[in-house]
Write a protein that binds this DNA or RNA. Structure first.
Ligand SMILES: [Mn+2]
Ligand SMILES: [Mn+2]
Ligand SMILES: [Mn+2]
Ligand SMILES: [Mn+2]
Lengths: 228, 228
DNA sequence: TGTATTTATTAGGTGAACCTAATTTTAGTA
DNA sequence: TACTAAAATTAGGTTCACCTAATAAATACA
């Protein structure tokens, strides 16, 4: 039986592996992500390994096994469905849902998750644009890239964000940028990578590269020259 | 700051004190209720006492302080609102909601509770007929007594149950007895206290005293002779 | 290639929440 | 009242999830 706190680790490992496509997840990253110290994490990894949920070698890093992957997708599913429910049904803002979902995601009832999903209208993406896995762990796919990779003149639409911290999301909300917002990339400042965008017809904002990196978009025009 | 597990204790103490009006709550009862051993409970009571949430002396038993009472009512509120939400909005049966609510009640967000309550239609009573405290800890009152105290010929209506175990509730569901069911008390068997009732026009059932004791009703006719 | 820095690992705790077994206190009853 | 049964308490664990400090290994880079 998977414990609540196994789930925290598995989701964290999944998120980290996702974030840095292909590269290996390390103990210190995991410790940082979970707000724990490396020895604590190492200790726990040994247990997860004994439970055959992950493999770990200092050389190759941390990897989810088949069953670890399955469990991870399940927690991700729960987390994203809670976020969706909180946003769509309970009318919480997209910056409030993550923290609450962290508390709620470890409740154990598949039936409950199913009902919440139905009540939310069964969307494919959560309030941050992240894909909601199916029960079998399959993710709906969507073509997306960081706003940072745009070329000048590109017209794109916001599909999601790569971070769900309250601060970051509140910042975007302040700027009036949300999911499905159309952005015109007016100028790229190569010296610091910041990006000037225009949206809602007349509003403009200069976004730092740190921010532009975390806003995921897709080009509207075909044959756009942006890097994918 | 009140911890999750403080809340478990406070709710348990509240429930026990309620159940046995006036009588003192003891360590062994609490241990039994929480499925713990007496030394564990004693140890914890000392902490709760240091936090000024309860008073405890072996002579006078366990009592909630003012602030303990306040916290207890708050957990009770959370628990009952979750039960109500699960039943009314998520369509869980009254026998399923208690266990789930136990997991959910320790999520910390007053705002969430408020929204759930709104979504549920702000009823005064939960799916077991238990009163939902207001934010200030005030309980809506209702006149009720155990079915067991009926006199023969009494017509009464079910307002609630005194136990929320799955088994008990499933048993009632099996008999087709739910909240607001009208019961005609046809016969009392004094040798074992069981009660024969007729309802839904033609259905009859003989309920053991143990069951009749836990079904809370109110008489329909004025001047009924039933004990209150 | 050698040294400095970062990362991982080991060793040895702590505190919380539980437990059992033994003892003492209290309460119920012959 | 004296004895017995039940309840409370004390003493002394165990396990779990965390920690710090010290050491070893890996990596970066001059
Ligand atoms: Mn999230
Ligand atoms: Mn999300
Ligand atoms: Mn309940
Ligand atoms: Mn209830």
């Amino acid at each position: 039986m998977i414990k609540t706190s196994d789930e925290k680790y598995l989701r964290a490992i999944y998120q980290i592996s996702q974030a840095e496509q292909g590269q290996k997840a390390t103990i210190s990253e995991l410790a940082y992500y979970l707000d724990l110290k490396p020895p604590t994490v190492l200790e726990r990894l040994k247990i997860l390994q004994a439970e055959k949920l992950i493999t770990y070698k200092k050389t190759s890093g941390i990897h989810l096994t088949k069953s670890g992957q399955k469990e991870a997708m399940n927690v991700v599913r729960k987390h994203r469905i809670w976020e969706t429910f909180l946003h769509k049904v309970c009318k919480f803002s997209w910056s409030e849902v993550h923290e609450l979902a962290e508390q709620l995601q470890n409740v154990n009832s598949e039936k409950l998750i199913d009902r919440l999903y139905t009540l939310s209208g069964e969307p494919q993406f959560d309030p941050h644009g992240d894909p909601i896995p199916s029960k079998t762990g399959v993710l709906p796919s969507s073509q997306r890239r960081p706003l940072l990779n745009s070329v000048e003149g590109c017209k794109c639409v916001v599909l999601g964000v790569n971070e769900d911290s309250t601060d970051f999301l509140n910042y975007l909300t302040e700027l009036n940028i949300g999911l499905n917002e159309r952005l015109n990339v007016e100028k790229l400042f190569s010296f610091d990578g910041s990006v000037k965008v225009k949206y809602k017809n007349s509003v403009t904002a200069v976004l730092s590269s740190k921010v532009a990196e975390k806003i995921m978009v897709t080009c509207i025009k075909a044959n756009c020259l942006c890097k994918v």
